[in-house]
């Protein structure tokens, strides 16, 4: 299938995009993440499910360096990134979106996406204005088009609707040739139409870009992923294909009954 084709496109390194080795995080006495190990192939699309407080977002924060893990090791395409600052991980091709939109409210969409494209290039301190022929500017326009925000490109982010802000969140993650993306509940608060748009955008991503998606909406999650990891109380407790997970009685109990497995 297209995943293996995509993997071979990466010069046959056969490397995993992401390897987590017993990654954990505690806040004082609270253990938010109690040792998660995971291997995700390049180009793989995986969903992480779990009830609130299961540690999904904490896992993302540890991977992207929003805060460092308390223990464990993280490797990204074979490179140890456990102790790298967040921006260094991004420059290696890792991207993320946030559950609650983290945007630049006083900038326009175009400028926001332009900055996201420039973030992984040289000369970020340039005191010259970007020229319309700037490569990053052209890339920004095509990404804005990909997330269907063409008509609004010049608007200030603070004036956008919630749905448009969610689209921009995704645009920022797509900028600058990502290799792997972490989507944190991208469908939260979207209308049914916007959800369909979102699924179309995710399915239209180039094959070499893998991702992990956190999603409460099983319909969305199972339609955009090929493998599913279930988390509960800060650790992984089940992995499988979408069909296996959907029909698993334990999963159904946690999702429908709110019990403790």
């Amino acid at each position: 299938m297209n995943v293996s084709i995509a993997a071979s496109r990466l010069q046959g390194t056969g490397a995993n995009a992401l390897e987590l080795d017993n990654v954990g995080r505690h806040f004082g006495a609270l253990v938010a993440l109690s040792g998660v190990s995971m291997k995700i192939r390049a180009g793989e699309r995986r969903a992480v499910l779990g009830s609130n407080g299961a540690g999904k977002t904490t896992l993302f924060n540890a991977i992207t360096g929003d805060f460092l893990p308390s223990f464990g090791r993280i490797r990204f395409f074979g490179e140890e990134i456990t102790h790298l600052p967040a921006h260094e991980r991004i420059r290696r091709g890792l991207r993320r979106t946030y559950q609650i939109s983290q945007l630049f409210t006083n900038l326009s969409i175009r400028d926001s996406v332009y900055l996201a494209c420039r973030g992984v290039t040289n000369n970020r301190f340039s005191l010259l204005r970007p020229s319309p022929s700037d490569g990053a500017m052209a890339q920004a326009e095509s990404i804005i088009h990909a997330v269907h925000l063409d008509g609004e490109a010049g608007l200030l982010v603070g004036t956008l609707s919630h749905g448009q802000q969610r689209q921009l969140e995704i645009a920022l993650a797509l900028a600058g040739a990502p290799r792997f993306i972490l989507f944190d509940e991208p469908a939260a608060g979207l209308s049914p139409t916007e959800r369909r748009d979102l699924i179309a955008i995710l399915n239209a991503l180039p094959g070499h870009i893998g991702y992990i998606i956190i999603e409460h909406d099983l319909d969305v999650a199972l339609r955009v992923s090929e493998y599913v990891s279930m988390m509960h109380n800060g650790s992984l407790f089940k992995e499988g294909t979408p069909e296996e997970i959907e029909n698993d009685p334990q999963v159904q109990e946690i999702y429908l009954g709110g019990g403790h497995g």
């Binding site: 921006h87 991004i90 973030g119």
Partner: peptide, 15 residues
């Protein structure tokens, strides 16, 4: 200006 608006997001796009 982007750093002023949201430093966390700036880190998450490589700055």
């Amino acid at each position: 200006q982007a750093v002023r608006d949201n430093p966390r997001r700036m880190r998450a796009i490589g700055y």
